[in-house]
Design a binder for these strands. Structure first.
Length: 629
DNA sequence: TCCGAAAACTTTTTT
DNA sequence: AGTTTTCGGA
């Protein structure tokens, strides 16, 4: 492992970094706030910065980099990108995890240091309170006049111990006490939610300053991804750990994509960060995702969200003919659905895009739209992939099945067995199996044996695939073979989320059912894999779900829909959700608006026309009918 | 079974 | 905020 001088460093795996990104990579004397709007290359920037710190020895052993993301797969992707850029030796000191995983790791190590009565039991259980639970709790304890939503927020923000609290309404103190009591009721088995784990982490850090000192000594550099979505509890933890210390923080995000306030995110995370920490600001000015015509419209919308928005430089070349953006007007719902379906079918047949590269976005209730579109899609020979759907009989959404650890391992093995070559899957599986089976990656004897065993199972499975056509039964059988090889006990022992049988079974059964569904009517295992992965299907998802993704073409259903009004009317969260939807498109984006659905023209419709987007009659399946106004 | 009123629900993630 | 589901009384 060679350490290079800072002057000799240059970006790896990419041609260049834009000046702002380069400055933000090399500035490690200040905390940084990096504004990265859609398509700016956030992950790449963080990976380059990690490489800079690790390969120049600015972060040398035993020091490590802590990277915090919100979603587990975002954390995984960042880790993977860093490994690609600077190799496994350096990237082993890059700890990429979710906020919750970070807090939980602290409780797992320091739980016994938490003062009574808040010391959790060693085998504490993690619970996920639902929408209903908050009101039920209040009613059960005789506080029907208090609001469940406020209660949830109070739990997420209360500082421990509750005995020291002095809320304006003393009832909250009583309720919070009852709530924490109930979590510790069974002395041997504490039940904690992630907001509670966050509160406990904060508490133990205040009671024992050595812990904060140890963490600061381990992590002189901290990356914060999607910083606009930080919650109050998470921000409090960051402040407690890193404010007025030598730790250098790099917060990356975009206020214009802040669409999680309703779920407890701070409305002003960046502002608070700038106020509480000494911060230098950089703005990434490239847009690698969208072509110039789309970036122009994006910018017009961006300035209505934030006056000071800088205009990004479009780096993608336009590769389509015809309209790249329009509002499609329809008189009624049926014509709308049929027209859009026809348009998609024509565009796919003309080879303009692959089905999986054309997304249908909706503000809410994707399941309702799926029910409406499915029959029409079937007639047109198209297949819809609603990722928010639960496979028949399963208790888990497709979108969650796809990112499960079990799925990632099993599918890699299945791909290896069905395809002639799949080196990425091979390396990935070797890594995961090493971890699952507790093998040392540096022990050649162990690694050789692992390679042999993997070759063995792959040739067994190849035989099976050759002899057995896909069916629900053969899927179950091959799944069982693969799980026997990987080891269900090892999976459950290594993946914390699989500790409870119920949670493991949900993931396994969900996978089994989706695989069986993908096998329906197929004669070829490769097409089963493609169907499982969504290849050849038009994805349908909510705007919130699409955050962070990109597609060749975006079709956005229901610009006029009543669901576009915020739960809090004067909030611009809805407008930002619209911006997120718009900025997913690489080549083109269309919106549908339908009079039959309620007819109200939303302010978003107005916003779009102000940005210079044409309102036209939508494409129709029945060209003889008179066009909508 | 029907009616009007009230309550539930909408966008998500987390081991 | 608007839509859908549930509930209670006839």
């Amino acid at each position: 492992m060679v350490i290079i001088r800072t002057n000799d460093w240059s970006p790896k795996g990419v041609d260049t970094l834009e000046p702002a990104a380069l400055r933000a990579v090399q500035n490690n004397d200040e905390n940084l706030c990096v504004v990265a709007s859609a398509g700016a290359g956030k992950t790449e920037f963080l990976a380059q910065k990690a490489d800079y710190l690790l390969s120049t020895g600015l972060c040398r052993p035993p020091h490590r980099i802590l990277a915090i993301s919100f979603k587990a797969d975002a954390a995984r992707n960042l880790k993977e990108r860093v490994r690609e850029r600077c190799g496994p030796q350096f990237s082993s000191r890059f700890d990429s995890m979710t906020f919750d995983a970070f807090s939980k790791s602290l409780i797992d190590r320091f739980g016994p240091l938490i003062p009574a009565p808040y010391t959790p039991s060693a085998d504490y259980e993690i619970v996920f309170p639902g929408y209903r639970d908050w009101n039920d709790f209040l009613r059960k304890h005789g506080y029907p006049q208090l609001s469940g939503v406020t209660f949830q927020a109070a739990v997420a923000r209360c500082s421990l111990p509750i005995a020291n609290l002095n809320p304006e309404n003393p009832q909250w103190k009583e309720v919070l006490n009852l709530y924490w009591d109930e979590a510790y009721q069974d002395r041997g088995h504490t039940r904690l939610s992630f907001p509670m784990i966050n509160r406990l982490t904060n508490y133990v850090l205040t009671t024992d300053p050595r812990l904060s000192a140890a963490l600061r000594a381990t992590y002189p550099f901290v990356f914060l991804d999607e910083f606009q979505d930080t919650t109050y509890g998470q921000y409090a933890l960051l402040k407690r750990l890193f404010q007025k210390t030598d730790v250098r923080m790099t917060a990356v995000g975009d206020n214009k994509q802040r669409i999680m306030v309703w779920a407890g995110a701070m409305p002003n995370a960046f502002e608070s960060f700038e106020k509480d920490f000494d911060v230098a600001e950089e703005t990434l000015l490239s847009n690698w995702r969208s072509h110039p015509e789309l970036v122009d419209i994006q910018h017009a919308i961006a300035v209505t969200l934030e006056k000071s928005s800088a205009k990004p430089e479009a780096k993608r070349i336009k590769s389509v003919d015809g309209d790249v953006c329009a509002v499609w007007h329809y008189a009624d719902r049926e014509v709308e659905c049929e027209g859009v379906t026809r348009w998609i079918a024509d565009a796919i047949n003309a080879g303009e895009m692959a089905p999986e590269d054309c997304v249908i976005l909706i503000r809410n209730k994707p399941n309702d739209l799926e029910a409406e579109l499915n029959p029409i899609f079937e007639n047109a020979g198209l297949r819809l992939r609603n990722v928010a759907r639960t496979p028949e009989g399963a208790k888990i959404l497709i979108q969650d099945i796809l990112t499960e650890e079990l799925t990632v391992c099993v599918m890699a093995l299945l791909r290896l067995s069905a395809r002639s070559k799949s080196p990425d899957d091979w390396h990935m599986l070797i890594d995961r199996l090493s971890a699952l089976w507790g093998l040392n990656p540096d022990n050649e004897v162990e690694q050789d044996r692992l390679q042999d065993e993997l070759s063995g199972i792959v040739s067994d499975l190849r035989q099976f695939i050759k002899k057995t056509p896909p069916s629900a039964n053969s899927c179950n059988e091959i799944l069982q073979r693969m799980l026997n090889f990987i080891g269900e006990a090892e999976l459950r022992a290594t993946v914390p989320a699989y500790t409870r049988a119920m949670d493991y079974n949900r993931a396994r059964d969900g996978f089994r059912l989706l695989l069986a569904e993908s096998a329906e009517g197929q004669t070829d295992w490769l097409s089963v894999i493609d169907r499982f992965d969504g290849v050849g299907q038009i994805p349908l998802m909510s705007v919130h779900r699409s955050k962070g993704l990109e597609f060749h073409t975006v079709i956005f259903f229901g610009l006029d829909s009543g669901s576009w009004w915020s739960f809090k009317p004067d909030d611009s969260e809805e407008m930002r959700a619209f911006f997120v939807a718009f900025t997913r498109a690489k080549q083109r984006v269309f919106f549908t608006s339908c009079r039959g659905r309620g007819g109200r023209i939303s302010y978003i419709d107005e916003l779009v026309s102000n940005a210079g987007v044409a309102r036209v009659a939508g494409p129709r399946a029945d060209t003889l009918a008179s066009p909508a106004e």
